[in-house]
Design a protein around this nucleic acid. Sequence first.
DNA 1: GTGGTCTAGACCACA
DNA 2: GTGGTCTAGACCACA
Lengths: 125, 125, 125, 125
Amino acid sequence: MEWSLRTDLPIYSQLVEQIRLAIVSGKLHPGEKIASVRDLASEAGVNPNTMQRALQELEREGMVFAQRTSGRYVTEELQIIEKAKVVLAEKQVQAFLITMQNLGYSSEEVINLLQSRKETKDVNS
Amino acid sequence: MEWSLRTDLPIYSQLVEQIRLAIVSGKLHPGEKIASVRDLASEAGVNPNTMQRALQELEREGMVFAQRTSGRYVTEELQIIEKAKVVLAEKQVQAFLITMQNLGYSSEEVINLLQSRKETKDVNS
Amino acid sequence: MEWSLRTDLPIYSQLVEQIRLAIVSGKLHPGEKIASVRDLASEAGVNPNTMQRALQELEREGMVFAQRTSGRYVTEELQIIEKAKVVLAEKQVQAFLITMQNLGYSSEEVINLLQSRKETKDVNS
Amino acid sequence: MEWSLRTDLPIYSQLVEQIRLAIVSGKLHPGEKIASVRDLASEAGVNPNTMQRALQELEREGMVFAQRTSGRYVTEELQIIEKAKVVLAEKQVQAFLITMQNLGYSSEEVINLLQSRKETKDVNS
DNA sequence: GTGGTCTAGACCACA
DNA sequence: GTGGTCTAGACCACA
């Protein structure tokens, strides 16, 4: 996995977000084994405790589950993943619209922009 | 200004990006004086050399200009700011669509999502 | 508060249990301010991080809430406390019956025991 | 044997209590040989002197007896065990009722709770 | 002072 | 080796 950490949010919550994204976008598959806490932590360049906290939060959400000695796995309950996907998409839309409004674009202008962009692409393809 | 630095991109280019966004979104006004390199650097928690480099890049773009003795100022040429805004918006749209596609949403679905969201909001307001 | 820690369960979960009991049994009142993490930790003889973890769990349950700089408080939502009370009572009953069964008493015998005990007391009072 | 020690009571008396419980609940059988003081102490994570003191107390009660060279054994006098069982059960009931009263349940409510619980179980089985 | 976050490092049970 | 727990100690923002 590739990790990107920012300075303005708690690390553990960014880890949660990124692992969740990996699951929701299918980079980690349902039932797939996840690397060990220690490995993930060294990969992301954070303390194992911080990674542990992120994974426990994901467990609480039902996105992953731990098996005592063998490691952690992505959930196999697809409806949990699907629901997380919808929530995440909603958040992305929200954040995008706020950014665009800061740039001076109304919702309507944003939609027009996407629409015209799509049409250009449709014609070209 | 609030700064948010990520681990996966060169710092100086992120500084450029964020100052540009501040100008384009109107948080820094045309003709407004910009804080000193030293102050900006300490605020952002980066090396003054890195901040210096970012400001020089912005000067090259015409977004800011330096006056020998009194410091740096946001450009007063509105068409430069306007053009940067369009470029930035385009980048945001691009990034947003890629993220949404990773979540499994086609351009059309994204547009529909925005559309229905807007309508809900219109009705409520 | 008086703390009693056992060797056979994680400390943090015992802390959760004991604070919950204090709230549910009315030793800590709705809306009452709770001692600081550091004070509670030193009182209980545990590391502040362990106490912090317990309090965050209680926050997640809605039993307490934190106010950024002023401290933590017992929830004022009585129905949360009431519900926790029912759950706790149920657990106590469960544990009690198991203990008694280990001593060879059936549910019926336990009830008879309590019944006759109550009658004796009623007569004496 | 599994040991659980608390911080708020003398260790030796907790050891007495737990060994007595093991005998009374049949986990240790009449006439059965008991592990050595040294082994029991290391298992429970206590000082051998403390375990020794616990076993001497149990000897005084007649729950166990020592044979010069071969070690200690659980008593074979069943009436001693039976009597200890009654005393222990009485203590459990007492403690349970106090806990429940702290939760706001009267003796009568407790009995009703157990009664309804039993009926539910009877119906389901 | 307060809650919150993070790191470093240790120890544990489980299989 | 794996997840889980705990401690010691540091630093941060907030007011």
